[in-house]
């Protein structure tokens, strides 16, 4: 096993751990915002890492896979931003513990009307 293959396997394993944690987060998290964070942040890193790991295994594909990594790197945060913004605009409140701080609710609820931001 060459050094490239060891690096590749390590990256693939790290990536799959992050993908698993992302899936677990979507299952376990209490509200949409934290689910979104688990579903995009963790899977962005996971997918990038898996793809780069494959690139170390097959050096011929490295350039193509690098393009994929760049694509994931700017499309995944973009979609999560769009979804989070849409949820915010539709007045979906973040989950808090009893007596927790929710600045968004404090802005919205006194008037009960839609706030322009």
């Amino acid at each position: 096993m060459s050094i490239m293959e060891i690096i590749g396997s390590f990256l693939v394993i790290v990536g799959s751990i992050f993908l698993f944690l992302g899936a677990l987060g979507i299952y376990r998290m209490p509200d949409l915002y934290s689910r979104l964070q688990a579903g995009t942040k963790a899977t962005t890193l996971g997918a990038m890492s898996v793809i780069l790991g494959v690139g170390f295994w097959e050096p011929d594909w490295f350039l193509k896979l690098l393009v994929l990594v760049v694509f994931i790197g700017y499309s995944n945060p973009l979609s999560s931003h769009a979804m989070a913004r849409a949820m915010f605009k539709k007045k979906i409140f973040p989950w808090t513990k009893e007596g927790g701080v929710d600045a968004y609710k404090e802005v919205i609820e006194p008037t009960g009307e839609k706030q322009e931001s």
Binding site: Y74, S75, L78, H81, A82, R85
Partner: peptide, 8 residues
């Protein structure tokens, strides 16, 4: 849409 989405 926000400016992030526009440029993205």
């Amino acid at each position: 849409a926000s400016s992030i989405i526009r440029s993205g």
